[in-house]
Design a protein around this nucleic acid. Structure first.
Lengths: 195, 195
DNA sequence: CGAGACTGTAAGTGTTCACTTACAGCAGGG
DNA sequence: CCCTGCTGTAAGTGAACACTTACAGTCTCG
């Protein structure tokens, strides 16, 4: 079974999308199989149970963003710091695929320790990534201004990502609102000067 | 049935807590009845279906906060603006009862138009409330400093509420982190000076 | 007191769920 | 050629689900 791993990799994006759209409970095994265009039974040969599918889907969603960010870090910044580029990118694309919703789905299953851990890992890594970019930015751009801790700013930026996603889902934030939010508040949080 | 309304008011807090802890799907009618210490059947005499219970629970969660805020606005501020008092209050108490989770639960059912509308109403009112307090604050504290729009700041503050709740649920943010986040970032967002 | 309305108890109903079993093809290798 | 093992199909399993029905109190108001 050397290619059963390959097969899983093909199916995980489909699973992730289903879990994001429907949540854990509503993404029934029958529906998952239908979307994957296989029989339920095949899913159970590849994964121990539905929870294992969900955990892999969570990992996948993180990997998607991580990969995008790696590319951002690698490319030339036109004088902008990595933090600025990440924010600009989020302003354009955040939540475009709705996959962040998998976090909300997972949060409703937090009494399942495996799901909980997968979520914690994912969310913690997001926060660390943003925090590190902020620290680099501030080291680069210097200034003796007293600032709010980069850990806190990073959390607030994650919060902004979450709220823009909710706002968009509920039709309360237009694409333009969302972009202004990222541009303007993002700027404030990157600097976060304490007055 | 004059007191069937009263009866509902007694039960709604119990329902709200169940939906918050378990999510919509996992909060089975059997479990809801058990927590309410009635038979399932009684719930169905008071509500048309499970969705109607959920919608009432969402309204209740908003009313809880709204009521707390009304009290905050009424009392003496010791020279602090209403916005400052709301933020200080959130720093101490936000998410204490975990009821915000009902939003995540609802977001997984967004293809149900009634639930969707209840959520939009609730979230929109939160945002308006915060935005209004920010506008008052800025009018009061004046300053000719150019600022980010109060609507955007309000969204960011909602995002902070969301992220502190998630962080706490996943064990990624201590109570102390959460307080520092509200105090420091809250301050930055209230002012939101554009540099 | 007695009819009608409400309340509580208990036992269903059909459906859907996560997950399994049975079995038919078909590869490769002795 | 048969044995072993993998892949795909289809049917099925018991449990749990949202929601209902039947019926025995009991309270209310004439």
């Amino acid at each position: 079974m050397p290619d059963s791993q390959e097969r899983k990799q093909e199916l995980i994006p489909v699973l992730a999308r289903a879990f994001s759209e429907l949540g854990f409970r509503r993404a029934t095994t029958a529906e998952l199989a239908r979307r994957c265009e296989v029989q339920e039974n095949i899913l159970y040969r590849l994964w121990k149970d539905k929870r294992a599918m969900f955990v892999d889907a969570i990992e996948y969603v993180y990997d998607l963003s991580a990969q995008l960010w790696e590319e951002l870090l690698a490319e030339n910044g036109d004088g902008r710091t990595a933090a600025e580029r990440v924010l600009a990118c989020e302003a354009e694309h955040h939540g475009e695929f709705g996959l962040y919703r998998i976090i909300f789905a997972g949060l409703m299953e937090t009494d399942d320790e495996e799901i909980r851990q997968a979520l914690r890992r994912m969310y913690g890594r997001y926060q660390s990534f943003v925090q590190r970019r902020l620290e680099e930015h501030r080291a680069e751009k210097g200034g003796k201004m007293k600032r709010v801790g980069a850990d806190l700013s990073a959390w607030a930026i994650l919060g902004m990502g979450t709220v823009t996603s909710i706002g968009r889902d509920l039709g309360l934030l237009s694409n333009d609102d969302r972009r202004r939010l990222w541009e303007q508040i993002g700027r404030v949080l990157i600097e976060a000067k304490t007055s």
